[in-house]
C-alpha cells in the first residue's frame, strides 16, 4: 500500500488515504536517457506480470498541444512556462497516474515536479514560490535520479542535435548553442544534485552504457515494487 501524502496542502478531489499501486519517479536532466531506461523497465516489469503505466511531460490531453505550440514561437516567459507545465503535470496526475495507482499498477513517471522546479529556479524563479505551488504533488514512493555531468551529457546530445530550451536559449545570452547548453545544464545539474541530497533520492550513475544504467535502476526499484500486494500482479 502507498500512503497518500502530499508535499503541501492536499488538493481537492482526492479522498483516499491509501493506494494499492506504486509511484516511482525517474528524474534526470535532458538527454540523460530517462525515456530509454523507462521503456526497458516497463517491458521488464510487464514480462514479470506487473501492470505498468508511464507518463512523461507534455503528454496531457489538456495542455500538451498548447505547450508545444507556445514553445515553437519561443514566446514563453519562465513563470508562464512553469505554470503550463504545472497544469500538464496535474492533468496527467489526475487522469493517468492516480487511476493507475488506484488500480494497483506501477506508475513510472518520466520526470516529476523536481525537474520542473529546477528549470524554473535556474531561470530566476523563487524556490519558495515553486515549493508552495508544487505542494499539490503527491509524494512518490521512490525517486531514482540518473546522475551525469555536463561533459559526459553533451556527448550524447551531439548526434541528435541541440535544442533551444535545453540550452537555455530563452534566458542565457551565450553566443553559441554549445556554450548555452553547457552553462544551462551545469546549473540545472547543480540544482538536481541539491534536491537529490535534500529529498534522499536513489542516485544512479548514468554515464555508462544503457544496460548498466538499467541494471542499477532495476536493483533500486525492485524492493519498492516487490512490496506490492501479490494480487496486483
Amino acid at each position: 500500500m502507498t500512503q497518500v501524502e502530499f508535499f503541501g496542502e492536499p488538493p481537492p478531489g482526492i479522498d483516499q488515504d491509501w493506494l494499492p499501486g506504486r509511484l516511482i519517479a525517474i528524474e534526470g536532466t535532458d538527454g540523460v536517457g530517462r525515456s530509454t531506461v523507462i521503456s526497458i523497465l516497463k517491458d521488464y516489469l510487464e514480462a514479470q506480470g506487473w501492470g505498468v503505466v508511464d507518463s512523461g511531460l507534455r503528454r496531457s490531453p489538456l495542455v500538451g498541444p498548447g505547450i508545444d505550440q507556445a514553445k515553437v514561437g519561443h514566446t514563453l516567459d519562465p513563470i508562464t512556462l512553469n505554470l503550463f507545465y504545472a497544469t500538464d503535470f496535474w492533468d496527467r496526475f489526475e487522469r493517468i497516474m492516480l487511476p493507475a495507482l488506484q488500480a494497483g499498477m506501477v506508475v513510472l513517471a518520466d520526470r516529476y515536479i523536481f525537474s520542473l522546479m529546477a528549470r524554473a529556479i535556474v531561470r530566476g524563479a523563487s524556490r519558495e514560490w515553486l515549493e508552495q505551488i508544487y505542494g499539490f504533488a503527491m509524494v512518490p514512493d521512490q525517486v531514482v535520479y540518473l546522475d551525469i555531468d555536463a561533459e559526459d551529457l553533451v556527448l550524447r546530445i551531439l548526434e541528435r542535435g541541440f535544442d533551444y530550451w535545453e540550452s537555455g536559449g530563452d534566458y542565457l545570452h551565450e553566443v553559441s548553442i554549445y556554450d548555452g547548453f553547457m552553462v544551462h545544464q551545469r546549473e540545472q545539474l547543480r540544482e538536481m544534485s541539491l534536491m537529490a541530497e535534500r529529498y534522499g533520492w536513489d542516485v544512479v550513475d548514468a554515464r555508462g552504457p544503457i544496460e548498466e544504467v538499467f541494471e542499477q535502476v532495476r536493483l533500486a526499484v525492485m524492493p519498492t515494487i516487490e512490496g506490492m500486494p501479490q494480487d496486483a500482479r
Binding site: P11, V63, T80, L83, F84, T87, W90, E94
Partner: peptide
C-alpha cells in the same frame, strides 16, 4: 477539474 482550472488560469 478544480486544480487544472486554477492552474491554467494562473498561466
Amino acid at each position: 477539474t478544480p486544480m487544472s482550472f486554477s492552474l491554467i488560469h494562473a498561466a
